[in-house]
């Protein structure tokens, strides 16, 4: 029984970590009024860069930093296109996804002699046990003895909440996403705030990608991210564009996946085909949304072009 709970919890953590990070990234961008469909691409570039740099430097931390830089650079393209050049935000996000998918696989082929994936990342993140807390039953072995990236993800939930709701910076950022013209009148630079927010989203999503290639897994290939960026967008909306909402949504999804997978080990496949069991997380998410969560209100100015002085 204890081991079952441990498995469930561990799988939940495994699955939610990248989702939390990418969705938090999306949160900053969208709260400032910039849609970020490009989370998938930002995760991809982060996963690729951190894997390659970890392999070459032997340090996952340097890899992670490099991944963040790469994520910021790619997000910069999104920011320049949408904020400075007023490109349609969804179009730009889609382009970011295409760009990352093409570029990373192309570079893997170029760097590793035509290979479809990077070599194994030997120096990956290993579990950190937190003293004292690690001795708590179930929780100690899972939540308090896990990858540093998971701790980063959890800490970032609190930090994001604090920054967005308790600092002037956060207030300005949200104001820009709700009423950009009013904010501008009040002396807030819409352009500057949106640039910062989009770059933050690139950094966070890249850490999510790094989790996939240097913590949960240990290589990068074309299928490393495989749609998680889109699930992260779903988690962001499910979580109603709020940090703790995102945490809850990602954990809910991770737990549903854990149930469907652990269910197989319990032998549920005798009664339900595994294809049907695999649908479980997706069905549960829809049911939860339809039954309990309901209406979601996006930031008011999201997706709208903003031109200084025009109304």
């Amino acid at each position: 029984m204890l081991s079952t709970m441990t498995s469930l919890l561990e799988t939940t953590i495994l699955y939610s970590t990248p989702l939390i990070l990418a969705a938090l990234g999306g949160l900053f961008s969208e709260r400032s009024g910039v849609i970020n469909i490009g989370l998938e691409g930002l995760m991809t570039i982060g996963a690729f860069t951190s894997a390659v740099v970890s392999i070459n430097t032997g340090s996952p931390w340097i890899g992670l930093l490099a991944g963040i830089v790469a994520g910021i650079l790619l997000a910069l393209i999104h920011a320049i296109a949408t904020v400075t050049f007023n490109a349609d935000q969804t179009v730009s996000g889609v382009a970011i996804n295409f760009l990352a998918a093409g570029l990373t696989v192309y570079l893997v082929k170029a760097l590793y002699d035509g290979a479809g994936q990077t070599p194994v990342v030997d120096s990956k993140f290993t579990e950190w046990a937190i003293p004292v807390l690690k001795d708590i039953p179930v929780l100690g072995d899972t939540l308090f003895n896990t990858s540093p990236i998971t701790y980063i993800a959890l800490i970032l939930v609190f930090v994001s909440y604090f920054v967005l709701y308790r600092t002037p910076f956060g207030m300005r950022l949200r104001a820009v996403g709700e009423h950009p013209h009013a904010a501008e009148t009040a002396g807030v630079s819409v352009v500057k705030m949106r640039y910062i927010a989009v770059l933050i989203s690139g950094a966070f999503a890249a850490v999510g990608g790094a989790a996939l290639s240097t913590s949960i897994g240990s290589e990068f290939s074309a299928t490393t991210v495989a749609g998680q960026g889109f699930i992260a967008i779903a988690a962001l909306i499910f979580g109603k564009w709020k940090p703790f909402g995102v945490l809850g949504a990602a954990a809910f999804f991770g737990f549903s996946v854990a149930l469907s997978l652990t269910g197989q080990v319990w032998g549920l496949t005798k009664y339900v085909p595994s294809e049907i069991l695999t649908m479980l997380p997706y069905l549960l998410t829809i049911l939860a949304l339809a039954g309990f969560v309901g209406r979601a209100n996006a930031p008011a100015a999201i997706g709208k072009l903003y031109e200084k002085g025009s109304r």
């Binding site: 081991s3 498995s7 561990e10 799988t11 699955y15 997978l261």
Partner: peptide, 17 residues
């Protein structure tokens, strides 16, 4: 392709004995 799923399944199997 989903390596995370593979890791989770392996975890459950090993944890299950």
């Amino acid at each position: 392709s989903d390596a995370t799923k593979g890791r989770s399944l392996a975890k459950s199997l090993y944890d299950g004995g």
